[in-house]
């Protein structure tokens, strides 16, 4: 105690010196003003992995569009060389019916990417709305909404698919319907959990007190704060949609053969694991690569959007 006082005693005017004052420009920003989205873009572009992800997605999309157009082979043409290993003529080899796997992979990319992304977007919309409304409303509404979700995930899915198979003509639309019936439940549960923990925090209460309506609350406060979990759930939705598609195609709900998709190619290829491993490897590799790219982009996006991570 005494020592501290002594230190203060030692302070004397000689220890300070006038460096001069800045006049007029104290209110001026030292740097240019950066809008929120510009900053997001900036931060995103600094994330190498995320940029790589975008790059991969662009390449995959371009190949999916152009390879089937320019390839010397068509995805259904049977060339008479069965289960051939990758070679100069057939970069990814041929399959059990003697079709070029390279063109089939890119033909399949069209369907798988479409299905994966569509299913993910539908799951996202339904899941986020359902989950946040349930979480926000609480009480009986919450209970009823979440029990509906439980019921949907408990009723035998296979039976539902069989009924769809009888009622609808096979194709992409029934496929999307089948994928969307239960796909969003996981998302809804996770969003609801997040909302429950966020909704009693001060800033949400403040927003409410200021008269924010439900829509505003969901979009401006709940979703941004649950964004991490939402993006992660979406990255699970895409591969699971791609593989559920192959299961549904197996049951007869998908696009009819010989149309290819990554999921069906991989599950067919899996049966030739020891005799023609390339039939499994290439579709599986591109599924993984694409999911990886989606993940990298998702992670980058999450980081870029998170205001707390601002430097």
């Amino acid at each position: 105690m005494a020592q501290k006082n002594q230190q203060f005693d030692k302070i004397s005017p000689e220890m300070f010196k006038i460096v001069g004052g800045r006049h007029g420009d104290t209110e001026k920003l030292s740097d240019k003003s950066v809008s929120f989205w510009k900053e997001v873009r900036l931060r995103f572009s600094q994330n190498k992995l995320a940029v790589f992800g975008i790059f991969v997605l662009v390449i995959v999309t371009l190949l999916a569009i152009f390879v089937p157009i320019f390839s010397p082979y068509s995805y259904r043409e049977q060339l008479g060389i069965y289960n051939a290993a990758p070679s100069a003529a057939h970069w990814f080899g041929t399959d059990d019916l003697g079709r070029d796997i390279f063109v089939r992979v890119w033909q399949g990319a069209r369907i798988s990417l479409f299905i994966g992304i569509t299913a993910a977007v539908i799951d996202l919309i339904i899941g986020v709305l359902w989950g946040s409304i349930a979480g926000l409303a609480g009480g009986r509404v919450d209970n009823i909404m979440m029990r509906i979700a439980d019921i949907l995930s408990a009723v035998p899915y296979l039976l539902v698919v069989i009924i769809l198979l009888v009622v609808l003509k096979p194709g992409l639309i029934p496929m999307i319907i089948a994928l969307s019936i239960t796909g969003w439940v996981n998302m809804a549960r996770i969003v609801r959990g997040e909302v429950l923990s966020i909704k009693n925090q001060e800033y949400v209460l403040a927003a409410r007190t200021l008269g924010a309506n439900t829509w505003h609350l969901i979009m401006k406060h709940l979703v941004p704060n649950a964004l991490g979990a939402i993006l992660v759930t979406m990255t699970l939705t895409i591969p699971s949609a791609i593989f559920t598609e192959s299961f549904l195609s197996y049951l007869g709900l998908g696009v009819p053969a010989p149309t290819a998709s990554w999921g069906t190619m991989a599950s067919e290829g899996n049966k030739a694991l020891t005799s023609a491993p390339w039939r499994l490897f290439f579709p599986a590799f591109f599924i993984s690569l694409t999911i990886f790219a989606f993940n990298a982009v998702g992670d980058g996006l999450r980081d870029a959007l998170d205001p707390k991570l601002r430097k």
């Binding site: 990255t235 699970l236 591969p239 593989f243 991989a266 599950s267 899996n270 499994l280 599986a284 599924i287 993984s288 694409t290 999911i291 990886f292 993940n295």
Partner: peptide, 10 residues
């Protein structure tokens, strides 16, 4: 991500 994207049957 590998774990997520490689399905259990493969």
């Amino acid at each position: 991500v590998l774990g997520i994207s490689v399905p259990s049957f493969i």
